[in-house]
Write a protein that binds this DNA or RNA. Structure first.
Lengths: 336, 336
DNA sequence: TTGTAAGCGTTATCAC
DNA sequence: GTGATAACGCTTACAA
């Protein structure tokens, strides 16, 4: 593989000059030399060695997309369609700006720190952080960090969040406005200080506002995979007076709908369901799923824009962007 | 950040010794020294600089997951749930074996080559390759390459494929056995020498075998996103004698089912549908989707195992693994 | 049992 | 306009 030295040798100049030309610092290099060098670069197929650059420049052009996984469940980063489409969006823009995306799951904050140091990572995206060891670690770091779906505040981080509370509140209120009063709440594990907790609070607030007593037996915390959803549905069916369910993810809502159908319950005739995210799945299920919409591509774009700005050393004018959510009415809710 | 030299200085030994201890080449290092060094490593939080290692060792521990995208459509790597869950599986195993995953989309083979050289990439996964410029490039490379969903043969590559022909053949034959004769075929762009072509051939073979004339007006090549599927369904409805559809991806099948329903067609009463992949979506749609099953986690595992073996310099005993497919009967097909 | 020195590819500093 | 030289952190002959 051709190196700068090769180019230098072939063109009869020094490595320094080649490097300067490559970096456009050619103010005082003769046009002729520039010409020669560029020609050689193409002919020899020279490509910069990022490791060497990284070593000398303390900037690796590597951006980490970090997923924190819980050790015990063998979860796959990509389970969540939201995650994966987000990653796709990020990769594209980063690439167009000369960066490289490393995907990494970590179980502990030590692992994360090790990874960041291994590669001199220039910046990182992190989803779903809580006030835990990760938060403590992240707040000591100086690289650009963009958080997704996080409710922790820190001057070091940028954050692209969502109106989670409002979304869930709207969903619940919508069911109430359709005459529902026994409304369940289904969600993956609700952690303190997390997105899902906000959504849970939104649900509760809507109940309270309408003088509907909160009943914790109507709150179901569950895995998102299809099997778990199917068995969760059986639990839900055991409480026959439930007429509506607010679910914090479309995938889960669709799974529950399938489960309810297997239990002989009709959606929306027997039970109404509202999802969250508005992924294309909502239009595929029968009945189509009424849900809370979020603009995933826009979130991706904003997150990367923030990242790029910080990488360039600018302070983004906003450290926190909260995107709106709104209800999309489809067929999975009926008035009673 | 602590370097080997720091450890050396603190412990009063040379960098060489530290390096040797780190790499377990401590055969002739005193137990006491080893002790000291390990202690210092922990205390100073030493973490190897992969760039430096890569530079000196010609091995980067970076594995590329390459996605070839067509420039004109702004497609997202992660559109396809198959892709994303595959990536998740790969990341985990690679990580456990000391490797790092870089995600990269490329439009041209030059871009790919540049990327590989930039990072001295140790190995790569590549999905859906054809006999095109990429094939030509890949055959010149000497790093381990594992292909997914590919029908090109080359001594340099490993390949984890599927019984695509058989899968589609089975799906079609199943419809025929249920009395269907006007059977459509819906798929994303069918490229020469690709997976989808194999599936297409399987479809055709089943028709031929049953003396059903092939009608190219019943072949629909289409994007996979929901909007395209909805409008595709309208086209399908215009040919009223179609009673069954073989689709090469579950996501697409689900989209088409939704579209048919909007056109007032009932599945399976008016039209039967068979999908491909057997992702969890099949259990969420109504009716549940009869489909061709493939074992995605197993494919991921095999692909990574092959990769790891090659990375360790062994020749995997099999360069090609073709996983079986089989039909999963659900509700989307009826006998006529 | 441990250390010295060279070199991987690049860039920054400073000199010519 | 251009070029030495040192340095980034690490590994590996080879010496001692």
């Amino acid at each position: 593989m051709a190196t700068i030295k090769d180019i230098a040798r072939v063109t009869g100049v020094s490595a320094t000059t080649v490097s300067n030309v490559i970096h456009g610092k050619s103010g005082r290099v003769s046009a002729e030399t520039i010409e020669k060098i560029n020609k050689a670069i193409i002919e020899l197929g020279y490509v910069p060695n990022m490791s060497a650059r990284s070593l000398v420049s303390n900037s690796s052009k590597v951006i980490g997309m970090i997923n924190h996984i819980v050790p015990h469940n063998q979860s796959n980063i990509m389970e969540d369609p939201f995650q994966s489409s987000f990653i796709g969006a990020i990769e594209r823009v980063l690439r167009e700006n000369g960066y490289y995306l490393m995907l990494r799951t970590v179980e502990t904050s030590e692992e994360l720190l090790k990874f960041l140091r291994n590669w001199n990572v220039d910046g990182m995206f992190f989803t779903g952080i809580f006030k835990d060891e990760f938060f403590d670690l992240l707040s000591t770091l100086t690289i650009p960090i963009v958080l997704i779906d996080s409710y922790v505040q820190h001057p070091n981080f940028c954050n692209v969040g969502l109106e989670d509370f409002e979304g869930s509140y709207t969903a619940t209120k919508y069911l109430i406005s359709k005459g529902h009063r026994r409304i369940a709440f289904a969600s993956p594990n609700i952690r303190d200080g997390g997105v899902l907790q906000e959504r849970f609070y939104g649900y509760k607030a809507a109940l309270t506002e309408n003088s509907i007593p909160f009943d914790k037996r109507l709150v179901f915390e569950n895995e998102m995979d299809i099997e778990s959803c199917l068995s969760l549905s059986k639990e839900i069916c055991k409480i026959p007076d439930i007429t509506g369910i607010v679910v914090t993810a479309d995938v889960m809502a669709a799974g529950i709908m399938a489960g309810l159908r297997r239990c002989g319950k009709k959606v929306p005739d027997d039970i109404s369901v509202v999802g969250f995210d508005d992924i294309s799945l909502c239009q595929m299920v029968t009945p189509t799923l009424t849900t809370i919409h979020q603009d995933i591509p826009l979130r991706g774009k904003i997150a990367v824009d923030m990242m790029l700005e910080m990488l360039e050393g600018k302070k983004p004018e906003k450290r926190e962007v909260i995107l709106p959510t709104y209800l999309v009415e489809r067929e999975s809710v009926r008035a009673i």
